Simulated assay, not measured.
Amino acid sequence: MGSEKTGGRGGVGRRTVLLGGGAALVGTAVLARDELRRAWWRLPGTERKRVQGELDHKGAVWTAAARANWRRADRPDDYVIDRVVIHVVQGSYATALKVFKNPGHGAAAHYVVGKDGRVAQMIRELDVAFHAGDRSMNERSVGIEHEGFVDRPQDFTPAMYAASAALTAGICARYGIPVDRKHIIGHVEVEGTDHTDPGPHWDWDRYLPLVRAARAKLS
């Protein structure tokens, strides 16, 4: 789990302002234009119609995360989705749902996968979940949380791997994401993170072939 840093491309840092008035003003103008371009869908009559509790993944159960733990968007029209980030919650399925419903937590993933293979969707894929601890990665990725602990390989069950692989395969199919380790990453691989999940016991050599097999069935 991770929050959304404010030092990403969406804001102007104090250091930028201190470096020089002219450069800072130009940078601010560029950033403002960039934000306006991405926010076109917020104009009256252009926002995509939404249905409360609508699912992106068939078979998931809708369990809404607290509104403070994600940001409304219209992906992939305003932000390209090209990454899937794998997390381990360091707790139970119920714990993940509980903390993501807590507005004081400051973070949530799009999905939670249990050891028994059940899947909860907590945030729509078109919205930005605060899961990776990095604004840019949050904007470009879908986050999948998994029940268990990084130091307990027994928590990563066949049912969990199968359900997660099917979920990731669907995400890759929807957004044209290659099924490889450059585009399907662990939270530990996000630049600047202090997290270690999914940890050394997450079996990537097992997981990627499962994702590829599930993806092939969707072709």
Rank of each mutant, 00 (worst) to 15 (best):
T157N: 02
G143I: 09
D155K: 04
H146I: 07
G143D: 15
R152Q: 13
E145Q: 12
E147T: 01
D151Y: 10
S136T: 14
G143Y: 04
G133K: 03
A132H: 06
F156R: 03
R140V: 06
G148D: 01
S136V: 10
T157Y: 03
V150S: 10
D134H: 15
E147M: 08
A159V: 03
D134I: 01
H131Y: 04
P158G: 06
N138T: 03
R152D: 10
P158V: 04
A132S: 15
G148L: 01
E139I: 05
G148Y: 04
V142E: 13
Q154V: 04
M137W: 10
H146S: 10
R135T: 12
G133W: 11
F156Q: 00
P153G: 04
M137L: 14
H131T: 13
R140F: 03
H146F: 05
A132M: 06
D155Q: 01
R152H: 12
P153A: 08
F149V: 09
G143H: 08
Q154Y: 07
E147V: 03
D155F: 06
N138L: 09
H146C: 10
T157D: 05
R135L: 12
G148S: 00
D155P: 04
H131V: 11
M137H: 08
T157K: 01
P158T: 00
D151V: 09
S136W: 14
S141W: 07
E147L: 04
N138W: 06
E139Y: 09
F149L: 12
A159G: 01
G148W: 03
P153H: 02
A132G: 07
E139H: 13
A159M: 05
F149R: 14
P153S: 07
G143C: 07
G143W: 03
D155L: 05
F149E: 14
D155I: 01
S141E: 13
V142F: 05
E147G: 00
A159K: 15
D151W: 06
I144C: 03
S136G: 14
F130D: 12
E145L: 12
H131M: 10
D134F: 10
H131L: 09
A159L: 08
S141M: 07
V142A: 08
R135G: 11
V150W: 07
I144F: 01
H146G: 01
